[in-house]
Design a protein around this nucleic acid. Sequence first.
DNA 1: TCTGGGGTCCTAGGACCC
DNA 2: TCTGGGGTCCTAGGACCC
Length: 369
Amino acid sequence: MDAFYASAELLRRPELKGQPVVIAGIGPMRTAAQVLAHPGRGVVTTATYEARAFGVHSAMPTVKAARLCPDCIFLPVDFSQYRRLSQAFKEAVRTLTPEVEDRGIDEIYIDLTDVPGDAFRLAQDMQQRVFAATGLTCSIGITPNKLLSKMASEFNKPRGITVLGLDDFTRDLHEKIWPLPAKRINGIGPKADMKLAGLGIVSIGDLAAADPAMLIARFGKSYGAWMHEAAHGRDARPVVTISEPKSRSRETTFEDDLHPKHDWNTLAAWMVKLSKQVAEDLKKRQLKGRTIGIKIRTDDFKIITRDKTLATPTDDEREIRKAAFECFQRTNAKRRLRLIGVRVMVEGDKEVDSTKASPEDPHTMVLFE
DNA sequence: TCTGGGGTCCTAGGACCC
DNA sequence: TCTGGGGTCCTAGGACCC
């Protein structure tokens, strides 16, 4: 989806169309001056294309965005609205094919292998269905695999359609993909990109030309080999239409850093609250987990985690809270804290055990002796 | 010039078991 | 006194993504 949160807000506030707008985790609507007068700890989630022209982008601290763009309008996030629109656009695509993989709130992969028709026209059809259902625009990349489609979808934003590698894979790879920076590959982030740059590898073409044995020596067997494959546009991952959640969590960044001892009461209250929220979330989704963990971020931005595995899965608030407190004590935190979070690793149903060992079956009873 | 919240996957060491 | 070759589970950290 194109500038998803921002576009979603403009649906409700059409008078802001054409203006630089920033969606961020802040209070009510604000001007840049008001943001600077009361600087918080939020970051930009989405900016309209007009705001991006000022250099504003996702993950940028809100205060920095306000400095860069004095005429920007700052709006708070409204996830329930975005979730509704997210469901609507995904439903619209599923009217074309059920082979849809969720990639978060505003992205999907679609397997069009068995959908007849010209690729470009299919993309146009999809854009129309999505717009009719939501009033929002999206960009689409159609290629032989997920890796390339992800890159192609970003080529002509907004409202872009890019078809790549279907007629002449090698030509498109060399002309359209290899000139791009290596970090445009989904899976090469800031760290790997820096390390690559240190080796003189900047573009995807550079990466493709690099000796795979060298990449493996520098980045490890798995990641190094994958990088080489990715640079050559190869990716065999299927579109996965169903997936089970692995963990549920809640975390919060404090307005002001808290001292682990001096501000213990406030900290403890947060842990109680977050444990409760996680427990409610698990119950609502009928999930349970045995491994409960906490995460803290200290004032030097370092993350420390501790976790504890229980004998049996739980969704009980008190049990989660108790484990969270135990974990916190084990951190031995001395520095001030800026964030705390509580997480439960979700277990698949323990059906494995009940099928393996039924009480009526004398052979399986041995397992318990 | 300060860096959100919610996730996934990978690595690696140690404990423990056969 | 020197010690294999699997395997699983738990824990901690880190990179990356939307």
